[in-house]
Simulated assay, not measured.
Amino acid sequence: MDQFHDIRPYNDAEVAEVLSNLVETPDFINTIIGFRFAQWPKFLQAPLAFCVKLVLKRQISKISNVHDFQMIVANYMERMIKTTTSSVEYRGIEKLDKETGYLFLSNHRDIAMDPAFVNYGLYLAGLNTVRIAIGDNLLRRPFVSDLMRLNKSFIVKRSANGIREMMAAFGQLSGYITQSLTQDQCNIWIAQKEGRAKDGLDQTDPAIIKMFFMSQKKEKVSFSTAMANLKVVPVSISYEYDPCAFDKANELHQKSTTGNYEKAEFEDIDSIKNGIVGQKGKVVVTFGDVIKEGFETAEEFVEEVDRQIITNYAIQPTHQAALALQQGLPSTDSAFSGYLDSCPEDLRETVLAMYANPLKQQKKYLNV
């Protein structure tokens, strides 16, 4: 019996059927039309749907396994990088071994692009792409779940209710991650905490570390040995510009002024779209060092993850400009000043803090 069938990515044998079902899913087709042909008149929706389905059927006829699907994704990544970034730089990737499965524990800025940039770097370096952890809160539309699982995503059941159901979900997730790394020799990507760091402060949630340990704890493996078995590599992802910055600032501003923020039903899907198509400037992905034995508690392990993520974070001109403006000094980056001018006035201080915080956090760690 496949104990992970409801959370694992799709395997090669499942790809053709899932793709065939997707093409016949009106919600999927209408989403593509809304994304690619938003300015077209409504009365053309039916013929557009017919044409989109024809094109998709032709494309999926060439896809018979997960690798084929990921090659299509790689083509879209190349196009996205050309149109929305000034450059993408990978640091520390040369330290990774092609024969080893790593647990990439990453800071989190963008729902889709964080793992996508990690994946693309591994692909370019000839390493195995990652199995991606994704919360079920993002999968309210079934076609999104199918697309993610085709792209080697596995599901984190954040919506589990009650202690017993949550513990069962965490146990299943822990077992899947451990098996992926130690038996399958696959790479895993997971964020250091639930949700994006909207304020620019990167901090690992100890509950994530405790979840990693659960499956090996049952086998009486010590915490230090168990975590070393997982070969955790902290990853720092830095964007010169965050395409979702103003939306994040609006959420933070509303929470701070009213104490509440009500998400729209498909707001996360909009964030995914905006993160993909929005301008990012320079992107830097830094792979840290494998964390070995010597950490006896989740809290000690968290300290090491945070140290690597924060000190390895690539400081961009936008971070320096934001801190200068916070300190009442002239902006060190005229482009950032123009960008800030386009921000609603009541959100500017929040946006400034978002960009300045990674630099302030790094200075604190480095005592500079």
Rank of each mutant, 00 (worst) to 15 (best):
residue 228 A to I: 00
residue 186 C to E: 13
residue 122 L to R: 07
residue 143 F to T: 07
residue 196 R to C: 08
residue 164 R to G: 06
residue 231 K to M: 06
residue 180 S to C: 14
residue 129 T to A: 00
residue 128 N to L: 04
residue 172 Q to T: 13
residue 210 K to A: 12
residue 199 D to Y: 06
residue 157 K to C: 04
residue 237 I to N: 03
residue 183 Q to L: 01
residue 146 D to Q: 14
residue 207 A to C: 03
residue 215 S to P: 05
residue 192 Q to V: 03
residue 150 L to V: 10
residue 180 S to Y: 02
residue 203 Q to N: 13
residue 207 A to R: 04
residue 193 K to E: 10
residue 144 V to D: 00
residue 207 A to G: 06
residue 152 K to D: 06
residue 193 K to L: 02
residue 114 D to E: 10
residue 188 I to C: 02
residue 174 S to W: 05
residue 222 S to P: 05
residue 147 L to Q: 09
residue 141 R to W: 01
residue 238 S to I: 03
residue 190 I to V: 13
residue 202 D to H: 09
residue 204 T to M: 05
residue 231 K to F: 02
residue 124 L to I: 09
residue 175 G to Q: 08
residue 189 W to N: 00
residue 193 K to Q: 13
residue 138 L to M: 12
residue 150 L to H: 06
residue 176 Y to M: 04
residue 212 F to A: 09
residue 126 G to M: 09
residue 156 V to T: 11
residue 193 K to W: 02
residue 198 K to A: 13
residue 209 I to W: 00
residue 195 G to W: 09
residue 171 G to C: 06
residue 138 L to W: 10
residue 154 F to R: 01
residue 199 D to Q: 01
residue 195 G to C: 10
residue 235 V to S: 07
residue 146 D to K: 13
residue 211 M to W: 03
residue 180 S to L: 08
residue 161 N to C: 05
residue 159 S to L: 13
residue 132 I to S: 00
residue 161 N to D: 11
residue 215 S to A: 14
residue 224 S to M: 08
residue 125 A to I: 04
residue 200 G to M: 11
residue 137 N to C: 11
residue 206 P to M: 03
residue 191 A to S: 12
residue 218 K to P: 04
residue 122 L to G: 07
residue 194 E to L: 13
residue 193 K to R: 15
residue 137 N to V: 10
residue 232 V to S: 03
residue 147 L to H: 08
residue 211 M to V: 08
residue 114 D to G: 10
residue 217 K to I: 02
residue 239 Y to A: 15
residue 116 A to H: 09
residue 134 I to F: 08
residue 147 L to F: 12
residue 203 Q to V: 15
residue 238 S to A: 15
residue 235 V to F: 02
residue 184 D to M: 10
residue 177 I to T: 07
residue 164 R to T: 10
residue 122 L to T: 05
residue 205 D to M: 04
residue 209 I to G: 01
residue 172 Q to S: 09
residue 206 P to L: 04
residue 116 A to K: 06
residue 239 Y to S: 11
residue 150 L to R: 06
residue 130 V to H: 00
residue 159 S to T: 15
residue 141 R to I: 10
residue 199 D to I: 01
residue 214 M to L: 11
residue 204 T to W: 03
residue 230 L to V: 09
residue 220 K to I: 01
residue 164 R to A: 13
residue 185 Q to W: 00
residue 127 L to G: 14
residue 225 T to F: 06
residue 125 A to K: 15
residue 171 G to M: 03
residue 126 G to K: 05
residue 176 Y to P: 07
residue 189 W to M: 01
residue 121 G to K: 06
residue 156 V to C: 12
residue 189 W to S: 00
residue 158 R to S: 09
residue 186 C to S: 15
residue 210 K to I: 02
residue 136 D to Y: 11
residue 219 E to T: 07
residue 174 S to A: 07
residue 212 F to K: 05
residue 214 M to C: 01
residue 223 F to N: 10
residue 227 M to P: 04
residue 177 I to G: 03
residue 129 T to R: 10
residue 144 V to F: 14
residue 206 P to Q: 01
residue 199 D to M: 01
residue 133 A to L: 11
residue 180 S to F: 08
residue 170 F to S: 12
residue 231 K to C: 11
residue 138 L to H: 12
residue 127 L to T: 14
residue 189 W to E: 00
residue 156 V to H: 13
residue 146 D to H: 14
residue 147 L to D: 02
residue 147 L to T: 09
residue 152 K to E: 08
residue 214 M to V: 05
residue 185 Q to P: 04
residue 219 E to D: 14
residue 174 S to H: 05
residue 224 S to A: 12
residue 129 T to Q: 12
residue 173 L to Y: 06
residue 227 M to V: 05
residue 183 Q to R: 10
residue 219 E to A: 14
residue 225 T to D: 13
